[in-house]
Structure formats: structure tokens, C-alpha cells
């Protein structure tokens, strides 16, 4: 038997993701430096990012609210390894509960010294207050917020 071949391959499948009406409104808001959440009138939770339905109560949501650009860092990680095709390290990610929201959401943490991994627990803290730093140019993307900065 001959040596088994390896055939190189690459997929380039283009997608056009439907964001749906809820995320679309959220992204529109970011353009204006507004962060929209949506309130479930049954369980009173405010969801950021907003969504069509409350998963718990299983009702359609329509009560839009604006939440603050400040919030609490629920937890954080720091990426040190370069993963092919993914952003260049090092960078920090946080789950952030914005003031006025019931649950956290994902974003970058910025203006943090990431050069020494062993120092991370001293630099970032669970429960720390953070604030959104906006991009000058905003086009209706989650990256209209550049990152969240610890206060």
C-alpha cells in the first residue's frame, strides 16, 4: 500500500447572517452611544443584549429600556496564545453586567497591563466597576464599543 495522501482544502462559504429585529435595534442604538436592553414584564429581568423572547417565561418581549454604559465585571480571562484565524494576543475579555441590566454580556477589557500573567489577579478583580469606551466612528456593530475600561 502507498503512503496515505493528505489533500489540502479550504472552504470559503459566505454567509449573510440575519440579525433579526431585536439585535438590529440594539446595533442601531450603539451608533448613537445608547445601549438598549429589553425587559420581561413577567419576571422583570432586563436582558442585554436584547432578545425576542424570555427563555424562562416564554413570552414575547417588547418593553425596551436603556441601560447605563457603566457596569460590574462579573468575570474575566486573558488570551495569551495565538489561535489561527482569531485575534492577536494578548487581550482580555470580560463578562460585564451593565448598570440596569440583570445579566452580564461579553466584551473586551482595555487599558489593562497584560504583560505578566501572574499579576492578572492583582490587576483585574471580580466585582470591579467598568465603563464603555466608544469608538469615534460607529457603524452599528458590537465593536462600536471599543472596550470596557476598569474604573
Amino acid at each position: 500500500m502507498s503512503k496515505p495522501f493528505e489533500i489540502p482544502g479550504k472552504w470559503e462559504i459566505e454567509y449573510k447572517y440575519a440579525a433579526g429585529p431585536y439585535i438590529s435595534k440594539f446595533l442601531e442604538g450603539l451608533k448613537e452611544k445608547k445601549i438598549f436592553g429589553i425587559k420581561c414584564n413577567s419576571c422583570k429581568r432586563v436582558y442585554v443584549p436584547p432578545r425576542m423572547f424570555c427563555e424562562r417565561c416564554y413570552v414575547e418581549l417588547n418593553d425596551w429600556v436603556e441601560v447605563k454604559e457603566t457596569g460590574t465585571l462579573e468575570t474575566f480571562i486573558v488570551v495569551y496564545r495565538k489561535f489561527y484565524g482569531l485575534p492577536d494576543p494578548p487581550y482580555a475579555l470580560g463578562l460585564i453586567k451593565l448598570d440596569g441590566a440583570s445579566e452580564s454580556f461579553l466584551h473586551y477589557l482595555g487599558e489593562v497591563d497584560l504583560s505578566r500573567p501572574e499579576k492578572i489577579p492583582e490587576i483585574l478583580k471580580q466585582g470591579q466597576k467598568v465603563i464603555a469606551i466608544w469608538n469615534e466612528e460607529r457603524k452599528g456593530s458590537i465593536l462600536d464599543i471599543k472596550y470596557f475600561k476598569p474604573l
Binding site: F76, L86, L93, L143
Partner: peptide, 21 residues
């Protein structure tokens, strides 16, 4: 793909959040 993909999140990142918290 609209909100979270840009942050380069994979399985190890999710587990890292667990360890951190």
C-alpha cells in the same frame, strides 16, 4: 456571529471564564 464571534471566543475561552470565576 453577530455579537460574540469577533472576540475570538472558542471552547477554551468559555472554560477559562469558569476557572477565573
Amino acid at each position: 456571529p453577530i455579537l460574540d464571534k469577533t472576540f475570538g471566543l472558542g471552547a477554551i475561552h468559555a472554560a477559562a471564564f469558569q476557572a477565573s470565576r
